[in-house]
Design a protein around this nucleic acid. Sequence first.
DNA 1: ATTTTATTTTGATATTTATCAAATTAGATA
DNA 2: TATCTAATTTGATAAATATCAAAATAAAAT
Lengths: 186, 186
Amino acid sequence: MTESEALALFKCLADKSRLQILKSLAMEDMYVERLAERLNLTAPTISFHLKKLTDVGAVRSYKTQYYTMYALCSEVFRPSIMELIQEKSDEADLQAQRDEAYRQKVLSSFMQYGKLKSIPAQKKKERIILEELLKAFEPGRIYTEREVNIILADYHDDFCTLRRDMIGEHLMERDKNGYWRVDEQK
Amino acid sequence: MTESEALALFKCLADKSRLQILKSLAMEDMYVERLAERLNLTAPTISFHLKKLTDVGAVRSYKTQYYTMYALCSEVFRPSIMELIQEKSDEADLQAQRDEAYRQKVLSSFMQYGKLKSIPAQKKKERIILEELLKAFEPGRIYTEREVNIILADYHDDFCTLRRDMIGEHLMERDKNGYWRVDEQK
DNA sequence: ATTTTATTTTGATATTTATCAAATTAGATA
DNA sequence: TATCTAATTTGATAAATATCAAAATAAAAT
């Protein structure tokens, strides 16, 4: 089971009516109207819940003459909660984690005591460093070139290269009034 | 753990952010801002989630100089989902179930083939029967005495007693225009 | 004492969703 | 085929809630 499947399962369990349905089905198979009567809900509402439960594989249904009987899929409920929580992440999450790990690795190999040991030659690595240094600037605020130099000089003597590459990587922009952060997201 | 505690726990698990928090805390204890950074959420949001998780006993916190560290309460996650689902119901639910069981017992011993075998002598039992017969009347509609008689006669020859006791139990009311159901709730 | 930093609370908002009534579909019996 | 009955879908509504920004607390360092 993947992480998002576990989430979907928990969402299903996070409802009183659905828990009651599961508890009822744990005792014996039942059809929609029987459940509606037991829980004091309408048939459409029970149907709605059973659909959700079916979608996550918690229940299954079979026909017996008049009725559509619903039954519990017990296997789904065997694992402990901990097992579900620790499901490994989906592909997207995994990639994000890998990215973050790489970022940390680059940061720790080029930064020390809050200073930049050297400016990475690889563009990809320098980009990561620059993104980190960018945090020293407030979003929206406009800085003079002198202010930018002072801030960057805190990290490395060659603040000119840093300043130029900030512009080159489009992390900052400039005009006659000064420099400012580029903030894309949101 | 009671049924409603299990429900509260599942509600907590039914959120992506909280699952990620738990997964993070499963690796190591963390403080609010660290989690906010990892999940790309604001500190207030993390705080909000941690409060919920604390309330259900999923995490606990302790102070270490600067920070409030949060830690997983692993015991909570050991049981299988099935164990939680089958928690016995709360006191209120249990009482409701007992009441319903008693009602069914009375109904089945005095009713047969949709007819009333006899009118219960015990007031408590008759009340249950009358409440059941009341369902034959539409809420809001006004019936003539003759109509009431016809409906009640379907259940027992002594429809006069039934009609009188409907009034006596305040299940129906009457005035010069006729009879009607008393519907309290909603 | 003052300032800084971490955390929580408050207020507002947008999204999700459980529920029902009414309408529709599907199956089985007559 | 026609007619029940069970089940689902649709549309509407009310309640819950995840999130953020801003304000308020708390706690530590200067």
